[in-house]
Design a protein around this nucleic acid. Structure first.
Lengths: 339, 339
DNA sequence: TTGAAAGCGTTACCAG
DNA sequence: CTGGTAACGCTTTCAA
């Protein structure tokens, strides 16, 4: 009947081939691979045997055209960020054994968040986990109209998409309690230059200022380019000034690492200048660094992000906003204020 | 004629909608978005205007069904690996401005290389960059029959897929020249447990042994679990033994970091025990760590990987195997042998 | 329980 | 240069 294709099986088998092999209809095969209702055990067995024999795997693109791509997307400005790595770890754990796959489109400083998100939408992912700190709320809301979205670390709560944040006020309070308790009075804060509103850095800075003023101290906020090097340069300036701070609270660990370098270069150590970071990246716990910092449990955030997306995929329409409480990890980079 | 859909534009516009809006055929629109031959300037203008107006973006899934997904896949056992991050950085740079996107499917210790590669094939990526050190050559060759593949760090050269490696013999020679030149005689090598054949670690170890024997010295190879902690524990053993080595060459930087920790914990420093790593991860250059190590220029590898894939996509069928020559970065973790 | 057929959004081929 | 049309591989009605 059908012409035999003698050229060999160059082409990946399609559902049609499985159906032919098993002597059933395509619809039946589709039901089997989806575990759908309405297939007799006998037919299921036949089909599964044919699937094995041919090594059949459904193509995501074809499925996507009919609704689901079984793909979730993660947007990150730059992989290599330890906190995001931890989030991805948690997400992967939560996804273990599910038919969904997580894919990451890395920006690497070349693609903006919008471009990445567009790329994910083009690929019709079934849900998106994003940082997108520079993207306007309205833009994300438009995105969330057709694709479930969870944004990490954004403090504004939209009705349209879910968010997961860390309590940055509580985290900063932990830091300030710690430093003030150690007797520090000249505490400087190093943050990234021009952070977007509603981002964690703004909350940390604001809380820092409030706590300083509440303690009757003068806040000193220094901005640095968001890199270890930028922090290094800014810290060199801080340390060479007339009123050298006895403690520096950095907006995140990468900055803190730069500060530590400046401290070491200036021939100082933790007994003279305490340094505290935020994020608890892997490097922070290394004994050669031993940075006091705030832990945000990114893996838990990753797990919850997946759960939130799954709920959305299964029909939830009202937004959820999760907030985690951070903890302080005291290490050797901070100590009593010098007397 | 056609019933008006009053429900609003919930649906993302399709090519058909653009065609209708511009009053041209679908084929014409397709040609415009692909910059294909045979469209008059006037038509192009009309179509582009319609595209802008509707905010049209082609769906990757539909394109994939016709041949290309404009997606390249990266398989990594675990993101967070600095070397791979560097490779991705190079790849992203090379891809800048092209219509192709790079997506990463992270294993995170839960997905094996084969599962990840299958996931990429399911998504019909147009090319794959992979590590896949644990996957049999035949398996990869079968994969490469339908999808261009570049494997990083695999020393066996297949006819079917491209490879990019670093000259691990030359790299190890650099390390040994350095340590022997500093007068070290008790040099231990720490490597990961049971590395697969043809992987970089095997070559480093073999070269180490040859160089030791050539110098009339006794090689000491210790295996550790492939983690900073595993290396720490192994190094503690090495350092507490009767014949303490004066230098430890670790198979890669993560191991070396663990060794450094053990050295510090034992109250020793670089004047007593030199430590050398391999990879030049970011942490290695930090002044608090300052690890002597071998740089593999992963970003260049990433750029070349993309080039190789593009060549394949454009028709090349004969395999290419690129080899890069590493360089030694001498830092403070290594010094003259104690007298 | 099973099969047939329509349709998802593109591309590529072929007439006009 | 332009428009129609047949795929691509899957899911999902709807009949039998």
């Amino acid at each position: 009947m059908s012409e035999s294709r003698s050229a060999g099986t160059v082409r990946r088998p399609a559902l049609r081939d499985v159906a032919r092999e098993a002597g059933v209809s395509e619809g039946a095969v589709s039901k089997v691979i989806r575990n759908a209702y309405g297939v007799s055990p006998a037919m299921r067995a036949r089909v599964e045997q044919a699937i094995d024999k041919l090594g059949y795997r459904p193509r995501t693109a074809a499925r996507a055209m009919r609704g689901r791509s079984f793909t979730l997307g993660f947007e990150t400005p730059h992989i290599g960020n330890d906190l995001h790595t931890l989030v991805i770890e948690g997400a992967a754990e939560q996804l273990d054994g599910s038919p969904y796959q997580l894919v990451i489109v890395p920006g690497m400083g070349r693609l903006g968040a919008k471009e990445i998100l567009d790329a994910l939408v083009d690929r019709q992912v079934d849900g998106i986990i994003a940082i997108a700190s520079e993207v306007e709320t309205e833009w994300i809301e438009k995105l969330a109209r057709h694709t479930p979205v969870v944004i990490l670390g954004r403090h504004d709560q939209s009705e349209r998409f879910d968010t997961i944040i860390n309590d940055d006020v509580a985290g900063t309070d932990l830091v300030m309690d710690h430093l003030l308790g150690l007797g520090h009075t000249r505490i400087a804060h190093l943050t990234i230059s021009s952070p977007s509103a509603m981002t964690p850095h703004v909350f940390r800075q604001t809380t820092y200022v409030q706590r300083m003023e509440a303690a009757g101290l003068s806040p000193v906020v220094t901005q640095a380019r968001a890199s270890e090097r930028g922090a290094y340069e800014a810290a060199v300036g801080l340390l060479s000034g007339p009123e050298r701070p006895t403690a520096i609270f950095a907006g995140h660990d990468s900055l803190a690492i730069g500060v530590l370098r400046a401290v070491a270069d200036a021939g100082l150590d933790a007994s003279e200048v305490s340094v505290v970071g935020y994020d608890n990246i892997e490097l922070a716990r290394h004994p050669l660094v031993s940075l006091t910092t705030v832990d945000q449990c990114g893996d838990e955030a990753g797990r919850v992000a997946i759960q939130l997306l799954m709920e959305r995929i299964e029909g939830r329409t009202v937004a959820r906003h999760e907030c985690f409480t951070p903890t302080l990890c005291v290490r050797r980079s901070s100590g009593p204020a010098p007397s």
